[in-house]
C-alpha cells in the first residue's frame, strides 16, 4: 500500500498508531490525509481497532475540575503582586524626583559657585585630615 505520491506505508501507519493511538487527530498533521486514506482499508481498520483498545482504557482516566476556590486564590496572588509592583514604582518614582532635584541643585551650584571658591585645591590641602592624596591612595600602603 505504497502506491502514489503521499501514500502511507503499512509500517508507517502501524508505527503512528502505536505512538499516537487510534484517533487520527492526534497524529502528525502532515500525515493525517495519507493516514485517513490508509485507515479506510481493511488492514488500516484492523490496526486502528487494536490501538482503540488501549485508547478506550486511557479515556477512563479523568481528572476532576480544580477546587472551586483555586482560581480565586491564584487571582488574589496575582493582584497582590501587581499592587506591590505599582507601589514600588510609585516609591521609585518619588525617589527619582528627589534624586533629580538633588542633581539639578548640584548643577546649579556648579554653575553659580566657581567664582566664590577660587582656591579649591588649596582648601583640600589645608584641612585637618592631612594630605588628601594619601587618604585615597591606599595601593602603596597595602604592600
Amino acid at each position: 500500500m505504497t502506491e502514489g505520491p503521499g501514500a502511507m506505508s503499512a509500517d508507517r501507519f502501524a508505527a503512528l498508531a502505536g505512538a499516537y493511538g487510534a484517533q487520527l487527530r492526534h497524529w502528525p498533521q502532515s500525515e493525517q490525509a495519507a493516514a485517513a486514506a490508509f485507515a479506510a482499508t481493511a488492514e488500516g481498520r484492523a490496526v486502528l481497532d487494536e490501538a482503540e483498545k488501549l485508547d478506550a482504557l486511557l479515556d477512563l482516566y479523568t481528572v476532576r475540575a480544580p477546587a472551586p476556590d483555586l482560581d480565586t486564590r491564584i487571582l488574589r496572588q496575582a493582584t497582590a503582586r501587581w499592587k506591590r509592583r505599582r507601589w514600588l514604582r510609585l516609591e521609585l518614582g518619588l525617589a527619582g524626583v528627589g534624586v533629580a532635584g538633588m542633581i539639578a541643585g548640584m548643577v546649579m551650584a556648579t554653575i553659580l559657585m566657581p567664582a566664590s571658591l577660587p582656591n579649591h585645591r588649596g582648601f583640600e590641602e589645608n584641612t585637618a585630615f592631612s594630605d588628601t592624596v594619601s587618604d585615597f591612595d591606599t595601593t602603596e600602603e597595602g604592600d
Binding site: 482516566y61 481528572v63 476532576r64 480544580p66 483555586l70 486564590r73 491564584i74
Partner: peptide
C-alpha cells in the same frame, strides 16, 4: 486562569498521580 488552570491541573495530576500536589504545581 480560566483558560489554563484546568489544563495545568490535569497535566500535573496525570504526571504526579496526586490531585493536591497538582493544584500546588498549578499555583
Amino acid at each position: 486562569i480560566k483558560r489554563k488552570l484546568p489544563r495545568l491541573v490535569a497535566l500535573a495530576a496525570r504526571m504526579l498521580g496526586d490531585r493536591t500536589e497538582a493544584e500546588d504545581v498549578a499555583q
